[in-house]
């Protein structure tokens, strides 16, 4: 666990995640091609390509879940009291209000989680994604944001590929979650500055 820089995307991890299965598939297909069985390599190549697609679409969230579980155990051993854990599709945020610490892990950097003092957070705000006026106002996503130095962290509490009216249950739940997380972060930040 690093307590240095905030790394939302680990470039080496992303490259490995994309290239490693592709390279493995190419090598295996090539080796099959050397065998004296006609056209077997085409079948194997197609099969491995499908496996690669499955891996790319499913493995990142599974790796994230496993790493998060390990990270939580590590935090427990260090006496970090997990008052609240929020998991979105792209990040997880764990707050210890008593000590004013915040633990963060990102989907594309699951091997480099960080723990920061909440007092380092400069600004916390909620973005309800509102678009339009009055009863026609809609939103496709709701998120809470915070800024540490020049880095902005945005964590979605609701996202959709279609717009929803602002008074729908989805949007209200998303706003409520975002408001709650912003309030908890603020409490942790104030606790840490005392």
């Amino acid at each position: 666990m690093r307590n240095r820089t905030l790394e939302k995307v680990d470039l080496y991890y992303v490259l490995f995640y994309v290239l490693a299965p592709a390279a493995l598939a190419i090598v295996v297909t090539f080796l099959i091609h050397l065998l004296p069985i006609r056209n077997l390599w085409i079948l194997v190549g197609i099969g491995l390509f499908i496996l690669c697609l499955v891996f790319w679409s499913l493995a990142s969230s599974r790796i994230f879940e496993l790493q998060l579980h390990k990270f939580e155990q590590q935090l427990d051993r260090q006496g970090f009291r997990r008052n609240y854990t929020f998991k979105s599709e792209a990040a997880a945020l764990i707050i210890d209000i008593n000590t004013g610490k915040v633990a963060l892990m990102f989907l594309w950097s699951p091997f480099h989680p960080i723990v920061i003092n909440a007092s380092r957070i400069d600004k916390i705000w909620v973005d309800d994604g509102k678009f339009g006026l009055g009863p026609f106002a809609t939103s496709k996503r709701v998120r809470f944001n915070f800024q540490i130095g020049k880095r902005k962290i945005r964590i979605n509490t609701f996202s959709s590929n279609r717009p929803w009216r602002m008074d729908t249950d989805y949007i209200l739940t998303g706003i409520s979650k975002a408001d709650m997380m912003a309030e908890l972060l603020d409490r942790a930040a104030r606790r840490n500055t005392k």
């Binding site: 008074d167 706003i175 409520s176 408001d179």
Partner: peptide, 9 residues
């Protein structure tokens, strides 16, 4: 209900 910014879910 869940109170959300003056509205109630």
């Amino acid at each position: 209900f869940l109170p959300v910014r003056g509205k109630e879910k």
